[in-house]
Design a protein around this nucleic acid. Structure first.
Lengths: 212, 212, 212, 212
DNA sequence: AATGAATGAGATTTCATTCAT
DNA sequence: GATGAATGAAATCTCATTCAT
């Protein structure tokens, strides 16, 4: 039984969250498209997600999607630009506790965007497309650098005594690598490293044995 | 629907590398296809690589590709199965040196398949497709588990005194996470963690401070 | 993989039969595709008719065909569902004349859909694909049953005296078999049975010789 | 897990019925191919049956199939020519019994090739391809004519008194139509007409009411 | 802003047939 | 006769994108 003609529910299917006055300023439509794109691209990958499917899930007509995002790649770009801040949002001062390096790192791991509810989804996109879409690669590297910088500030505050620059950097890079690996592993249901244990290790590497 | 009979001899039927006796049992053809698939999939991603392009690079007609690999996904499966051992190939005893934990870990990092010449290429595939192709995810998890086990054996041999099981496991998991992140970061030109520094950190975390 | 943008206007976008107001809601396009499919499938068989040929005859681009009928088999299904009623459209009362069994059967043969202008075409499809496409088989059996039922009602009205149930059923089944064979024979230019003669035979079989 | 290379069982898989001296004169191979073709074409239709599948079921290499049957259509032609006699094999005299028209027709129905064990299979092919492959249509028409002729001879022998030519022909054509429809209906699991009842009807139509 | 039919390039896959050994 | 790799045309189907309304 084939349908007489493909039909589409269209604007009439607007959700409960539409403005009460019945107007639709396009903001909601646009973000519904981004929501759909985020979910589907995270699940299936960018190349494997047809624009038609994104439009269907967003309950907008196919043509409208291209009004907001003239090229498919714009969806990806916009998701990164608007939903995944390249620089960590939390301040070192709010996280670090003087004298508690390991604990500060653990709080850092929790405070960072990568653990926000929608973050696994975006991280998924980030890691998957990083190798093939240059702009995604840039974004990921920028995030990495921001995280390393933040981690260094946290270590500075948390450490009992001034840190050797090289060691601080190595500690920060290692911890951030574990943070990123954790986000990456989540998307393929891989085993996650124990960040608390890692924080201890990193922390203990900074403690000069014998006060050196 | 009768097909036209082939009229074109095919410039690729014989290549410089063909066996001297002129025989061609298909083994060489098959591996040429896999070579091409490996390169292109690693560079552009599985979905973004048309089979036509793989055939062209392998210098075989499109149809022949499907003679050896009936579905496109079989290329991916075969690359994993035949070219990327799920279990590390080196033995703990060849790597670990008693009394030198950090050095043993560094040697492990070098000895492991992930640093073989063709490994970045395959790692690229592995990480990119892990989230969307279940079998790739399995493979990656199997590799992870194999690496953790190997790392634990290395730590056992290298450690001066018997290790606490939980600590040993945490150390191994952390180091393997860094190993994998390193392989992953390479594919999007991300900054690589300093594995030597990481080996020190992990190593120092195993040294009981004050004999505890 | 970005697609090239369409550069060709499409000579078939507007046809002589398009609505005067220039609107095109797709209804006409859809039925043009079905027309083409009906002709070609009837002539060459379903498997031997490429979708490209159907599209060409309908003067629509190949892609549009799959917009309306996502799978090729949907064309067949739709033809059956929309163009070949599974149940005969004529009423027994309009056909049967009390006291004239043979004449009533002849009128039945003419009144039934199988003799409509487009019917040989569809019957062709029906018989050819019945063995391999289950849904076509169902349709054909449903048609058969509907015809037998109608024929029985016609016999009831036309017969001078009440009929023995078993005999009535045998008569109806035999006549319908001849009806169907006739439709089938037409498609391979086979000799058609003389339905008038058959109607007489069937009719005479119902007349109790000597009132038995 | 993709096979290293497609393998083929080859002649080694020869069946128990091969000649004891180990030779293979090709007769057995050839008929094994025809067996396979018959089964598969009957089940799926000629167009939908790949030669590769026929070769696989026959357990012969693909290339060998084309040694015996250079074109795919030759398989169909050969099946008709060698396995489906265009003319009925039984003699009227062996079937007809003077004075028993209905019984003679029933015996005819059973004696005719269409009820042989392999006949449904071939009938299937016959009816399916009759409309599209001219040679199949010819064959079917030839069979029809042969059957009508045979039926007329049977009627002549069985009838108590000489038959009017036109009536005899009509009776024969009607009965043959039912015979063919029966063979055709079998292939799509359609309801089969009751040939015994039909024989009675046809027979009664020949009995001059009131001795006319 | 909204709509959905239209477009055509290109993707994967199938397959009859050939041919060197 | 036997074998299976090789060939390339063609089939079905997908999809980003456009455009008239």
């Amino acid at each position: 039984m084939t349908r007489a003609r493909p039909t589409h529910v269209g604007r009439a299917a607007r959700r409960a969250t539409a403005p009460e006055d019945g107007s639709n300023d396009g903001v909601e439509t646009r973000s519904r498209i981004l929501d759909a794109a985020e979910d589907l691209i995270a699940r299936d990958g960018f190349d494997a997600t047809p624009t038609a499917q994104i439009a269907a899930r967003a309950e907008v007509p196919k043509g409208l999607l291209f009004y907001y995002f003239p090229k498919k790649i714009d969806l990806l770009r916009t998701l990164l630009a608007e939903r995944l801040p390249a620089h960590p949002l939390c301040a070192a001062a709010d996280i670090a506790v003087h004298g508690d390096v390991a604990g500060s790192l653990v709080r850092l791991a929790h405070g960072v965007d990568l653990s926000r509810p929608d973050s696994p989804v975006l991280a998924s996109i980030l890691f998957r497309e990083a190798g093939t879409h240059p702009e995604v690669g840039h974004h990921l590297r920028a995030m990495h650098d921001g995280l390393v910088e933040l981690t260094e500030r946290v270590l500075d505050i948390a450490a009992a005594s001034p840190l050797n620059h090289r060691r601080r950097r190595e500690a920060a890079q290692t911890f951030v690598a574990l943070l990123l690996h954790s986000a990456n592993a989540r998307r393929f249901d891989g085993p996650l490293p124990d960040l608390t244990a890692a924080a201890s290790m990193v922390s203990s590497s900074l403690v000069p044995i014998g006060g050196a």
